[in-house]
Write a protein that binds this DNA or RNA. Structure first.
Lengths: 190, 190
DNA sequence: CCAGTTTACTTCAAAAATTGAAGTAAGTTA
DNA sequence: TAACTTACTTCAATTTTTGAAGTAAACTGG
């Protein structure tokens, strides 16, 4: 039925999005029924990727409107994500790169804008003067705090009970797995 | 520990990323232990959003390299996503908009490029001449097929057993939920 | 039937985000 | 100490996204 939703013309019996039927372990033994049979439908690689793209778009525009509500004009969604990635720790540009899988010049660009806007401070590290230490200024912290306040409502909607929490965590971990698999593939070939 | 990974300085007892402690249902009764206690850590809104952004970036660059391998120069990751969204059905631009939460002019732009490259056909609908019917050409189908072939390897790595399948599906459904919540919020305010 | 509105897109120009090549300055190593 | 590596930054594209304005077809109320 999600299948239906995404790929109306696909023959389920033969091949979905790059799976051959043989690619799958038998889907059996789910009539013991501690858990309802969740996976009546197989979710593929590309379906997830498309879902992720959509959700990402949604979140970006959410951030944008949130920012507008707050009257912040000089921080777009991408920069806001950087602020959230910095969080309340002090870190180097390199660490930030890892946090978001950015490309160096990209982060440099955002950091420049954020520094110009007064949202972050950059101080050269004492021990290694090449390395810039980044942290939120009070202004930056205030913006993050406001975003987090706004976010509280979503957290309450999304995590209403124990099951929700479990699912959110499974989603998180599964995405992390995707991150690793796709990332390693990019570097070393699959 | 994921907590640790993302927000090294946060006080777990007080507030994480917009949650107050009071926002959560008690996390109890997990020593019955049918399932291991999955959610020792609470995943928030923003953590998911950041994860999604990262994973999306990974997938884009994967698509890009895949495209390079295939020797396709005139289709970027974004356009490839559109091709995948079209899949093997014929649909209207409006339906495509829904499938990806695009903005109209955006899709128009991609469709133009894809049409110029010979990857799609657009035919005015008979019943409603305003509406364009879109479908992949043979060339477009071939490209998608190649991508799906390449994708098979990932599917095999990602969905090795029943548990993997279950988790992928939970992730998919959870993301769908995020999509709805964030989307509705964008339109009607939360 | 026909003015006015809505729908389904397209076009265009601008802004934002991403990429990649080249640079700089500080550390490290042989 | 010369050569190399690391940790970034800058700049100039390129790609992607946005928003305003336009067009043509379909619908709607009088």
């Amino acid at each position: 039925m999600i299948q239906k939703l995404l790929h109306e013309g696909v023959e389920v019996e033969t091949s979905i999005d790059g799976y051959d039927a043989v690619d799958f372990p038998e889907i059996t033994a789910e009539k013991q029924g501690h858990k309802p049979p969740v996976h009546t439908v197989v979710v593929t690689h590309f379906e997830l990727a498309r879902m992720i793209e959509r959700v990402n778009r949604r979140f970006s525009s959410l951030l944008r409107t949130e920012m507008t509500k707050l009257g912040v004009e000089d921080v777009g969604p991408a920069q806001a994500m950087v602020l959230l990635a910095i969080g309340d720790v002090e870190l180097s540009v390199g660490e930030l790169l890892d946090r978001g899988h950015y490309i160096g010049s990209n982060i440099s660009y955002y950091l420049k804008q954020l520094a110009d806007g007064g949202y972050i401070d950059r101080v050269a590290s004492q021990r290694d003067k090449r390395s810039a230490r980044i942290r939120l200024t009070e202004k930056g912290e205030r913006l993050c705090a406001n975003l987090r306040d706004a976010g509280g409502a979503y957290n309450r909607v999304l995590a209403r009970d124990d099951d929700d929490l479990r699912n959110l965590e499974i989603a998180f971990q599964t995405l992390h797995r995707l991150e690793l698999v796709w990332g390693n593939a990019a570097r070393y070939g699959i």
